[in-house]
């Protein structure tokens, strides 16, 4: 057993993943490696979160791999889970076995399962080399610029200004109003343009 304590969490996403990929096979294949824990859950992003937190604490995990959907959707979710469990949020890697596996190899469940196992292996090797990181804090200038003085730009500026924020509204033409100002009346209620 290695010194790292990696936990692997495999999401079924209802039937989105488990309907194609044989998750139990992943669990068995990964269970034969030196990871500290492999756990399946029907919905890792919802009910599974609490499970991950308690597993990190109970099994003293120091990094995790979440095999679920795209990291573009849930990276932040599982980073927060790590934080809640007391480990660095960057000691987590997501493995995409939904968009890049079950959904695009729907009619090839055997190959999809084999690919999922490979992807989880890749995730484990990747997370082993992850470093704990801390976000960089930079000062916030509390002033916004809105580019375009049509209805959207006007409304965005007013909303922010009403909340007390300073706004610069930049318009290329000599007046604000944009295309809206050219309209006679607006559908569906035939109101005058605002």
């Amino acid at each position: 057993m290695s010194e790292d304590r990696t936990g692997v969490f495999i999401c079924h996403c209802g039937t989105n993943i488990a309907g194609t990929v044989n998750c139990q096979e992943i669990t068995e294949a990964i269970g034969r490696t030196d990871v500290a824990l492999v756990r399946e859950h029907a919905y890792m992003c919802t009910g599974g979160q609490a499970q991950i937190v308690s597993d990190i604490q109970e099994f003293d995990l120091d990094r995790i791999v979440v095999a679920a959907c795209s990291p573009r959707i849930h990276d932040e979710t599982f980073r927060s889970v790590c934080k809640e469990a007391g480990i660095n949020p960057y000691m987590m890697e997501m493995v995409n076995i939904r968009e890049q596996c079950s959904w695009c190899h729907t009619n090839q469940p055997v190959e999809a399962t084999q690919k999922a196992i490979d992807l989880v292996h890749m995730g484990i090797e990747n997370v082993k080399l992850n470093q704990p990181l801390t976000p960089i804090e930079v000062p916030m200038t509390k002033k916004a610029i809105v580019i375009g003085g049509g209805i959207s730009g006007i409304e965005a500026s007013l909303q922010m200004a009403d909340l007390g924020h300073k706004v610069i509204l930049v318009e290329r033409g000599p007046t604000i109003g944009g295309k809206m100002a050219q309209l006679n009346k607006i559908f569906p209620d035939q109101n005058c343009s605002p």
Binding site: I147, A161, D162, I168, V170, P174, I176, G177, A181
Partner: peptide, 19 residues
């Protein structure tokens, strides 16, 4: 529209473009 012109928190720059 008029509200923009008189809002103390809005600086309106017409005839201006971002470069």
């Amino acid at each position: 529209m008029v509200d923009v012109g008189r809002h103390p928190n809005i600086e309106l720059l017409t005839l201006s473009e971002v470069v």
